[in-house]
């Protein structure tokens, strides 16, 4: 047994108190926008302009949440459905295709693997604004080639996900490398091919990493604004993020109680996921950020 490390422990209780005080102040600051959002979302229209503002809404008006579901320019149900459809297709595609590619990078020795892996990592650094114009023309061209519309549909948003995402491939590869090779050798002797090893041996063991990948690709879709803005055209196809922006520009900056209620609706799934899967989030960020 090693002795308990003395380092890092704070011996002076006043120092600990000072750190607590500092962190509490910072946390209040970080939480303030959330509290203000929640508070405004429960106010009446008149009370949103009240001076001095009150944190506890009085009278409180939870009906705002009903109103945003029936508002003529904010189709909450439809936008949620659209976002979920895109999310399911994206999460399924990213997870499956990235697992296959990651297996190739992690477990098969071949010439040029190192270079290809380097190229793949470099693509993480290409910002979307740089490729958005040519991608737009490519999807227009794909429309001509395949005889069906791509622009103005969900396809440009989810089809690319089925060809692996660099971030997910990297994360899964790092995880696959930690799975003992003996296990796959045993399966090979039992007559498993590479695909069999991937699906019967590696993937069942890689569930935590698959969860990270699924969670992150869901978050990307849920939070994405630019790609839907570029590719979607008709309001009935809008995602929640796009719908909320459209709602805001349609009603202008006055019904803050409704805008905040809609914002709460948009962040609620994300916040819920975070509290359910906090460890998964942290693992994902640290693997890709540190072990790279």
């Amino acid at each position: 047994m090693t002795a308990k490390p003395k380092i890092g422990r704070i011996r002076n209780p006043w120092n600990a108190l000072a750190i607590h005080a500092g962190l509490i102040c910072i946390c209040v600051g970080y939480l303030l926008p959330f509290l203000w959002m929640a508070s405004t979302s429960l106010k009446t229209l008149e009370k949103t302009g009240e001076i001095p503002p009150r944190f506890i809404p009085h009278p409180w008006q939870p009906q705002n949440y009903v109103k945003i579901f029936t508002h003529p320019t904010f189709h909450a149900v439809l936008f949620t459905r659209n976002t979920i459809v895109i999310a399911i297709l994206t999460v399924a595609g990213t997870t499956l295709s990235s697992a296959i590619v990651a297996y190739g990078f992690a477990r098969i020795q071949f010439r040029g693997r190192g270079i290809l892996f380097g190229i793949m990592l470099a693509t993480i650094m290409i910002p979307f604004p740089v490729t958005m114009v040519p991608l737009f023309t490519i999807f227009r061209r794909l429309g001509d080639l395949t005889g069906m519309a791509w622009l103005g549909t969900f396809k440009p948003l989810w089809v690319p996900a089925w060809f692996g995402s660099a971030f997910s491939i990297f994360l899964l590869r790092q995880f696959f490398l930690t799975i003992p090779k003996d296990l796959s050798e045993a399966a090979r002797i039992d007559g498993c091919g590479e695909l069999g090893i991937l699906f019967r041996v590696v993937l069942p063991l890689a569930r935590p990493a698959l969860a990270v990948v699924a969670l992150f690709s869901f978050m990307v879709v849920w939070n994405d604004f630019l790609a839907p803005l570029v590719y979607l055209q008709r309001p009935e196809q809008f995602t929640l993020a796009l719908g909320l922006d459209n709602f805001q520009s349609a009603v202008g900056g006055t019904p803050w109680h409704l805008l905040m209620a809609a914002s709460v609706l948009v962040i609620l799934p994300v916040v819920a996921l975070f509290f359910l899967a906090q460890r998964t989030f942290i693992e994902g960020i640290t693997t890709t950020g540190i072990k790279g």
């Binding site: 910072i26 946390c27 970080y30 926008p33 959330f34 203000w36 959002m37 405004t40 978050m219 849920w222 939070n223 604004f225 929640l240 993020a241 796009l242 909320l244 922006d245 805001q248 900056g253 803050w256 805008l259 905040m260 809609a262 914002s263 948009v266 962040i267 994300v270 916040v271 975070f274 989030f281 942290i282």
Partner: peptide
């Protein structure tokens, strides 16, 4: 401190405008 980095840009833009 981690939470704000997760929420959609549209929602943070909205609340900060307010």
């Amino acid at each position: 401190i981690f939470l704000p980095s997760l929420i959609p840009a549209i929602a943070s833009a909205m609340v900060w405008m307010w």
